[in-house]
């Protein structure tokens, strides 16, 4: 991510998640966004979004880093059933849940971290609904 793009990302996040995010880059340009989000009437969650140096040409990855343990409606740890199409979970990395977000064919460089966070918020909302209904997350978010 170049400097101009980073400024845009920071400006958008500062106006939409004020005080709730931290965006950093390493020497090679790989980015990490840590952000706190809340589901209406529900829990709050910590997301870690990582991006390769060629972001936004490449799609970032989304990890759930807080709470560390999430369970499905049957009480199983989500980590133990990942990857899962029904729950829209990819293969975990470093024991962190990895959430599905944009389809690769829907990704383009004008999608920002902000939109990825919104996509993740939809996942979390679907997850909280799943806890109540037992329905798989795909019922809420599609395939």
């Amino acid at each position: 991510m170049d400097e101009a793009r980073r400024k845009i990302e920071e400006t958008v996040l500062a106006s939409t998640f004020p005080g709730a995010f931290r965006l950093t880059q390493d020497a090679k340009g790989a980015a990490r966004l840590e952000v706190e989000v809340t589901v209406p009437g529900g829990g709050s969650y910590g997301l870690l979004i990582t991006a390769e140096p060629d972001y936004p040409s490449s799609m970032p990855e989304v990890y759930l880093v807080r709470p560390l343990v999430l369970r499905d409606a049957r009480g199983r740890e989500l980590l133990s059933i990942s990857p899962s199409h029904e729950m829209h979970l990819l293969k975990p990395r470093n024991r962190f849940l990895r959430l599905c977000h944009y389809k690769p064919e829907a990704w383009h460089p004008s999608v920002t971290f902000y939109k990825v966070v919104l996509k993740s918020l939809l996942w979390l909302t679907a997850y909280e609904n799943h806890l109540q209904s037992g329905r798989p997350i795909t019922d809420y978010l599609g395939t």
């Binding site: 589901v39 209406p40 009437g41 909302t125 679907a126 909280e128 609904n129 109540q132 019922d139």
Partner: peptide
């Protein structure tokens, strides 16, 4: 005023 469950219901209907 609409809670999370209402959003879930809306998403289900759309799907």
């Amino acid at each position: 005023q609409l809670p999370s469950a209402a959003i879930g219901g809306e998403l289900l209907l759309r799907r």
